[in-house]
Structure formats: C-alpha cells, structure tokens
C-alpha cells in the first residue's frame, strides 16, 4: 500500500509543480501587462477574429514575429518582435506554429488594401500565382450583375469572372478583412 501512495503522490507532485511553473506563473507575470492596455476592439474586429479561428487560418499562418537576429522575420518586413500586448487580448490565441503562408502580425500595414484582401480570400490564385492557400468562396455571394445595385462586385481578373454575375463580399468577409487590417503594429496602443 505504501508503494501505491508513494507512486501516486510522486506522479501528481511532478505534474503539479510543472503545471504551476508553465501555466500559473506565466499567467501571473503576463496578465497584468496585457490587461493594462485599451485595445479599442470594434465589433467587426472581434467577429473577424472569430472567423479567422473558424476557418483555421492558423494552420498556415503564424502571428508572432521573432526578434531581429533570430530568423529573418524582421528583414522580411513582417514587423518588429511581437509583444504580449500585440494581440488585442482576443482569445483563442493565434500565435500559430506554421508558416506555409507569411506571418500576419503586421499584415494590416503591409497590405492595407481591402480590395486586394477580398480578391485574395475569394480566390488566392487570382492575385498570387501558384499560391496553395485555399479559396473561401462561402464568404462571398455570387449574384446577377443587375442585382443589388448599391453593392459593387469584386474586380476579378478575366479568368475568374463569371459572365453575367458579380461577386459581392458578405458581412463575414468584411469582418475578416477588418480584422486583418487591424493587425498593424503601427497603430497607437499596440506599440511596445
């Protein structure tokens, strides 16, 4: 019996110590910093974040810039080294571990064009030849040219146009792009 208890106690103790070390301590250290900032998150940004999560962009895009001198993140123009305050305090976190596509920490400043993002999300290969990013057509509606006169269709390159139809972004697409444009390390309050 004593053996049992030594075993059980030991197993739980090593676990508990490391758990405090790697989850509770970081929380105590980092949380106060992150909570001290006012991020001014709009409805669009919060919704866009949720769509980014839903579509699993994180499996191809990281959102953490490594410090200058470690990798070439800075030289690639992906921004300065990320800080804990950079994430608008939105969870789930989007740090990511894969760079099939470029890091997006600073995409709002690198690519500020709404039109470009819309075309790219509808069909990445329309603007980026050979890209392996998936298309997201369900964030768009294809309607007759004459329908919705107050909404303009995307200006797609020739081969992706559908004759007699236009492609208009849904609210979800607008939210997602609003979120992407909010990823901007130059916005005040997000500087380090």
């Amino acid at each position: 019996m004593v053996r049992n208890w030594i075993l059980l106690f030991g197993i739980i103790a090593v676990f508990a110590i490391a758990m405090v070390g790697l989850t509770i301590l970081p929380k105590l250290v980092v949380d106060p910093r992150v909570e001290a900032v006012d991020y001014g998150n709009t409805f669009e940004i919060v919704q866009g974040h949720a769509i980014y999560v839903r579509e699993g962009c994180i499996y191809c895009h990281s959102m953490q810039v490594r410090p200058e001198g470690f990798g070439a993140d800075f030289e690639r123009g992906w921004g300065r080294a990320s800080e804990a305050e950079d994430y608008r305090n939105l969870t789930p976190h989007l740090l990511g571990t894969m760079r099939t596509g470029p890091d997006l920490s600073n995409i709002g400043s690198r690519q500020p064009s709404v039109d470009w993002h819309m075309i790219h999300l509808y069909q990445p290969r329309a603007v980026s030849e050979g890209s392996i990013m998936p298309p997201y057509p369900w964030l768009f509606e294809v309607v007759n040219e004459t329908a919705r006169p107050n909404r303009e269709g995307l200006s797609l390159p020739e081969e992706y146009r559908i004759p007699g139809k236009k492609v208009i972004p849904t609210d979800e697409a607008r939210y997602l792009v609003a979120f992407l444009l909010s990823l901007n390390q130059q916005v005040p309050g997000m500087e380090d």
């Binding site: 490391a18 989850t23 980092v30 992150v34 994430y87 305090n89 969870t91 976190h93 989007l94 740090l95």
Partner: peptide, 15 residues
C-alpha cells in the same frame, strides 16, 4: 477558463 490572455493561453496550449 483562466487562460484568457492570448500569450498565456499559447503557453498553456503547448504545455
């Protein structure tokens, strides 16, 4: 539900 700041959650995630 205590890991709700992004970086800390990332730490919990990989832990």
């Amino acid at each position: 539900p205590i890991f709700n700041s992004p970086t800390v959650q990332a730490g919990m995630n990989w832990w």
